[in-house]
Simulated scan of single mutants.
Amino acid sequence: MQIGVLFVCLGNICRSPMAEAIFRNLVNERGIEERFIIDSAGTGDWHIGEGPHQGTVKKLAEHNISTQGMYSRELKRNDYDRFDYIVCMDESNIQNALPMLGQKDSLKVFRLLDLLDVPKDVPDPYFTGDFEETYQLCLKGCKALLQKIEEDNNMEH
Rank of each mutant, 00 (worst) to 15 (best):
L6N: 04
F7H: 09
V8N: 03
L10Y: 01
L10H: 01
G11P: 01
N12D: 14
C14Q: 05
C14M: 10
R15S: 02
S16A: 14
S16N: 06
S16L: 05
F23P: 02
F23T: 08
R24N: 09
N25E: 13
L26M: 05
V27T: 07
V27G: 06
N28L: 15
E29K: 15
R30I: 08
R30D: 06
R30Y: 10
G31D: 14
G31P: 09
A41M: 09
G42L: 02
G44C: 15
W46H: 09
G49S: 11
E50P: 06
G51V: 04
P52V: 04
H53I: 08
H53T: 05
Q54T: 12
G55A: 03
G55W: 01
T56I: 05
K58I: 13
A61W: 07
H63I: 12
S66K: 10
T67P: 03
T67K: 01
T67C: 05
M70G: 01
Y71G: 12
S72A: 06
R73V: 05
R73N: 04
R73K: 12
R73P: 01
L75P: 00
D79T: 04
D79W: 00
Y80M: 13
D81Y: 11
R82Q: 13
Y85V: 02
I86L: 04
I86C: 02
I86W: 00
I94P: 02
Q95L: 15
L98R: 14
P99N: 10
Q103Y: 08
K108M: 09
F110E: 06
F110M: 07
R111Q: 03
L115Y: 08
L115P: 08
V118W: 14
K120A: 15
D121W: 00
V122R: 00
V122G: 00
D124A: 10
D124G: 09
Y126P: 00
F127E: 12
G129W: 11
E133H: 15
Y135D: 05
L137D: 04
L139G: 04
K140W: 11
A144E: 09
L146T: 01
D152P: 09
H157Q: 13
